[in-house]
Design a protein around this nucleic acid. Structure first.
Lengths: 115, 115
DNA sequence: TAGCACGCTACGAAAACAGTAGCAATCGTA
DNA sequence: TACGATTGCTACTGTTTTCGTAGCGTGCTA
């Protein structure tokens, strides 16, 4: 299995066009894929089924959603529980770092309409 | 100028397939574009010229880099100073929220090699 | 005036994503 | 045991985004 085929970059791998493989860039590479952060965000308040999660992600296409789920599962950020997909402990840790962005965004976004 | 042509979503706009327009989704939409977070990260320790920044972003293609720069400038996260591109005050605020991810990623990434 | 570094654009190829349809498995119900 | 409803998920086509490379116009310097 080559780096190219592996779902998510490992430490030292070329990272989707990035060749440094620094941890933060590995993370950015993962999070900057469509719906990756949205999935974490929408699982934060409890487990969701595939279709439930899909609705909350504005009906993201199931192919992309499923690809993202595989990726996030492969790096142990989410897991499939009897109650549906849910954040793992690592996922909750990561979410705790993302969470403050919600408040910050609420202060930031309205200012954009000046354009 | 339609929402589709505007570089970055405004509050209430459909957000690249997302129709909620919640602030956090507007932010996620912006940050989940290629190199958006990398640019903020690489400008955190001082201004950089276009070419300098490009090298730090693993030689990202200039077209994408320039597109991202336009977007980040249009929402007042970076600006073009005499010394090169630099974070604005808003940009530094946002970076302060991103910064802890660097340490977290260093704990997280090595564990991925168990796959 | 010849070089050089600058910000930036153009363009074809490749990859990612959207949008829709639908399948196989599982469940509760009758 | 058959039925419909719901589940996770795949397949396919068309659009959008990104990549990778080449190169333009400007300003500075020697």
């Amino acid at each position: 299995m080559s780096a190219r085929d592996r779902p998510v970059a490992r430490l030292g791998d070329p990272v989707r066009g990035s060749r440094s493989g620094q941890p933060i860039m590995v993370l950015f590479d993962l999070l900057s894929r469509r719906w990756a952060m949205g999935i974490l965000w929408n699982l934060a308040d409890g487990p969701r089924t595939f279709r439930d999660l899909r609705e909350r992600c504005d009906s993201a296409s199931p192919s992309v959603l499923n690809t993202r789920i595989k990726e996030l599962r492969s790096v142990n950020l989410i897991e499939n529980t009897p109650g549906g997909y849910a954040l793992t402990e690592s996922g909750r840790e990561l979410f705790r770092h993302l969470e403050p962005l919600g408040d910050w965004a609420m202060d930031w976004v309205p200012g954009l309409d000046r354009g």
